[in-house]
Design a protein around this nucleic acid. Structure first.
Lengths: 209, 209
DNA sequence: CGTACTTTTGAATCGCATCAAATCTGGTGG
DNA sequence: CCACCAGATTTGATGCGATTCAAAAGTACG
């Protein structure tokens, strides 16, 4: 049954940032989670690696005191890559909204990585770029002021001091660890001072002088 | 000459978090950089992957306006993993202090990854864990207050609400994106309120109730 | 014993979060 | 086409928490 779904949705289920080999997609299954539903729990043995196509899945760690730390929020992308090398999950995964996922059995994943040199290189590349992206993100979030974070964002994510946003300013604010008001105000101040230009969804830094 | 150094320092040059195969270490070289010295520049073609054993190396991106964004700071660990899959460097690397590095030629690295399945799995594991660690770090830095970041740190890095620090509180403050004063004050307040216990270098959260 | 560094506390200031409200925008259905 | 709605954008006011500067006390090490 799942196989039928897979074939029917073949085009739709291909993870965009990392093409998976056909042979691997043939072994994958598509899952749908309702909002609030659980994908796995702490202690479970990982059997699949998941790719989130739509919706939102969160990795949560609950403490004995009932407090809850969010480890990762995925709206599109691979989930809990570390589960590939862990004997058990160290957190829970829960859908924050109705979500669609692709489940790839770990054994098939490892077999494909052993057998297919170009897929292996692509997967190494994905992980390496992810590490780089996250390191940059951490450096950015470590900056104290909204303006420094915004400038860092434009200089590291953009070309020649200019970026084009994918989403809204509000979502940018969240990724910068700021309230959206703080970002709007910072942008407004920089515009008034002639240090930035906003055209549609592109932000361009101007010469300081 | 370099080969002699390598053999002499064989024991000392093994990167601790990821044992490299002997055959690969035999091809590696040890470098020493003076503070301020350059390891590579933007546009250079990557020929090695570097492991920082001691000192401090920073990845920097300079804008045309002369501003400078720090992408990564490494005191111990691999540097610019993404260079393994890039045609050229997108940033400069500069030693912040006298530093010792191990340089592993990329061709040898790829050959070892193709040939040695257990090293391959170890390298996948290293990258996957690094992704996980960095995702958690980003979530933490996105929290608005010092207390939330500290609590998140203890709950995600520790066991059962308790961590033992490697370094100083001051360095913890930096990794939490806080001034050291802010961390000291937060710790002090939580201690006074009986919500945390500090014994030597271990921090333990207490029941909220 | 001196030096360098961490830890700690104080005071002043600044920037951000928060709450509130108004406007703008794109998309939907009547 | 227009009314309507949800969400994004924008501005204002307020308070809190963090940064910063400053200084003192503690600590490790040669």
């Amino acid at each position: 049954m799942i196989a039928v779904i897979c074939i029917a949705n073949r085009a739709a289920m291909t993870p965009d940032p990392l093409p998976l080999p056909e042979s691997l997609l043939a072994k994958a299954a598509v899952l749908t989670l309702a909002g609030g539903e659980n994908l796995f729990r702490r202690g479970d043995v990982p059997r699949n690696i998941y790719y989130v196509r739509a919706g939102e899945v969160r990795l949560l760690r609950y403490s004995r005191r009932g407090t809850c730390a969010v480890l990762q929020t995925v709206r599109q992308g691979f989930l809990a890559e570390a589960s590939m090398v862990s004997a058990s999950y160290h957190c829970d995964a829960e859908a924050g909204a109705e979500s669609q996922l692709v489940a790839i059995p770990l054994a098939e994943m490892w077999a494909a990585l052993d057998a297919d040199a170009s897929f292996r290189r692509a997967w190494f590349g994905y992980l390496a770029r992810e590490v780089k992206r996250l390191r940059t993100q951490c450096e950015r979030l470590g900056l104290p002021t909204a303006e420094e974070r915004l400038t860092h964002f434009i200089e590291t994510e953009g070309q020649e001091g200019s970026v084009t946003l994918n989403g809204t300013l509000k979502s940018l604010a969240q990724s910068l660890g700021l309230s959206h008001e703080a970002l709007y105000r910072t942008l407004g101040r920089m515009k008034r001072q002639g240090r930035i230009v906003v055209e549609g969804s592109s932000l361009t830094l101007l010469e300081a002088r």
